[in-house]
Design a protein around this nucleic acid. Sequence first.
DNA 1: CTTGCTGTCTAAATTGATTTAGGCCAAACC
DNA 2: GGTTTGGCCTAAATCAATTTAGACAGCAAG
Lengths: 353, 353
Amino acid sequence: MIKKTSLADIAASLGVSKTLVSLVLNDKADRYGISRETQTRVRERIAELNYRPDALARVFRTGKTLNIGLLVPDISNVFCAAMARSIEKKAWEHAYSLVICSTQDNPDRENKQIRNLLDKRVDGLIISSSQQNPGVFNALSEEGFPHVLIDRTYKDMRSPSVSTDNFWGASMVAGHFLEQGFRHMAMVFVAAEHLSAINDRIMGFTSALSAAGVEIPSRWKIRVPLNDAAGTIEAQLNGLKQAGNMPEAIFALNHRLTSDCLLSLRKLNLDIPGEVALAGFDDMPWFALTRPSVTAVRQPLETIGEQAFNLLKRQMNQTDRKGMEASVHLPVELIIRESSVIRASQPAKQHLP
Amino acid sequence: MIKKTSLADIAASLGVSKTLVSLVLNDKADRYGISRETQTRVRERIAELNYRPDALARVFRTGKTLNIGLLVPDISNVFCAAMARSIEKKAWEHAYSLVICSTQDNPDRENKQIRNLLDKRVDGLIISSSQQNPGVFNALSEEGFPHVLIDRTYKDMRSPSVSTDNFWGASMVAGHFLEQGFRHMAMVFVAAEHLSAINDRIMGFTSALSAAGVEIPSRWKIRVPLNDAAGTIEAQLNGLKQAGNMPEAIFALNHRLTSDCLLSLRKLNLDIPGEVALAGFDDMPWFALTRPSVTAVRQPLETIGEQAFNLLKRQMNQTDRKGMEASVHLPVELIIRESSVIRASQPAKQHLP
DNA sequence: CTTGCTGTCTAAATTGATTTAGGCCAAACC
DNA sequence: GGTTTGGCCTAAATCAATTTAGACAGCAAG
């Protein structure tokens, strides 16, 4: 590897001090009264020797790496990838680079990765967490370390966060189902109710139904493990079908579950929405391409990323790190498509007594 | 921010030298004959003070950041995200972190990002490039800087790369179309023939057809701009339909184009595969969920990532950096689904003379 | 002639770990 | 008694920048 030219090389080749070159480099030359002529000489030599300052040495002095860390459950998940993209875009605009880690919804790994990123001295963290509790984040707050939580937040937490209105989104689905005349509804969710996003959706859906006098029996609360959602869903739905216990409508609490439900219902030869209606949380571009196209709650992924970066930037700029607690809560949108709509003329079927 | 404990603090608190602590820390104590007892004292104090070495200072000495850079056209693209995930997985296993940049298929930006990452002293680069030519990469090779190209490669290039058999994949589509009795075929591709992946697919498809005596007239070579693929496709297909010039089958050269085609054909009320068959390159999980489900060439995304990391690791371990040129070429698979299959009993329609 | 000021520029400390080259002491050997 | 050897440990250089505190020259004013 070719030895890079250093600031010392420039200084030596001009017979001036490193200080002087550094001052010119950082646009402080005028303030320190370096003559214009000398400045020009330095700049010319810099260009000539194709000098690029060593970012690392600079970090070592200044303490700023211009790196930020992003922790998400799984970067290959479209949902995470979309947020990552918008964060990365804003980051790049502000000269930051993004170090991305997938936690695989493993709190242990998440903690290790946080420690690793702190050791590597990222300037801030954006985290979609899988923790059971916000202990780590309160510790970060305590230290005044810049960080923002996205998508998933915690109750007794002082960290800034960006979340969407999961409760309202799920309520809208409930409202829509009710409007379609459904009274027998199921809910499919992953076994991770400690995560605010999941819990809020469950609450939003059930409480909106309750308000209309509709309760979900426990056999229609389909709780699936993280590792084999598809299999469990298929087994459960099959069981219900065999027992003649199918609900009129199913609400799947994230986009993967929605796909899994779609596939399972097909395998069971159930007409959607004729026999069972379907709606999901998280809209995916291709929900418009399936047959039937799928109703879903759309979250403003791009905005989440942008806002998260903004909140983080504010903290990173702040020299006094305390008292930055501000959070953003974003609205969601219900995209109604074929999978949940029964013709107005055709009343909702009553599958069950 | 709380001042971290440093190696000097440990040393001072024990009345030993920094050297000694460093030796213990790096498991070189035995080699340097540090007494077991002292080692234990040091280790205890380290645990006690909750000391974590500053990765940055370490980098400054050793030159290794344990960061690697990944450049992809767009991290929110499922295709890129899947590769990123598998690279990140392997990287984490080997204690590396991944800095991800989206180039937006902009060679200029790509160059800037490469320079930025080099300045930040990543230990290696994995790149899905958008360059017109391999100049930058040959320069990296020259310097012996560890790097691997993925997905897109260049002819006269000495850099290691991981690619898939685009030519063969496209040939298989051609073969499948021919088998189905189609003779009038169209091809939809983005205006970026300088990229090996695109070009190989074009060549694979056309040459396999040529071999069977089928040529694609220019009106069916649908070349779309990167920025408005969907609009262009719709306009072109509409034009063909109006003119009564529809092909029997369409081959879309990447997964986005495939989706766009699917949507456009629907809008034009054309039956797939009855009136027009469709197949694409890059298989997406949800191609199984659409109606009709979509035939596509599947690339081993996970393997690409793994192999890329392996090739990179080999280079990073090597102290003598020359002569590492090795490339990997991976097989692809044609997943045949409804969109391209016409019942054996029902001969392919002849739309055109 | 001294003092003060201005305009230019620099020496040296700093950042936190790693590594080279060697120091010091006690025991063993000739 | 002097030299070697081995065991245990350390001083100081190094990485490449930034920053603090101040040097030095030349000129003007007192």
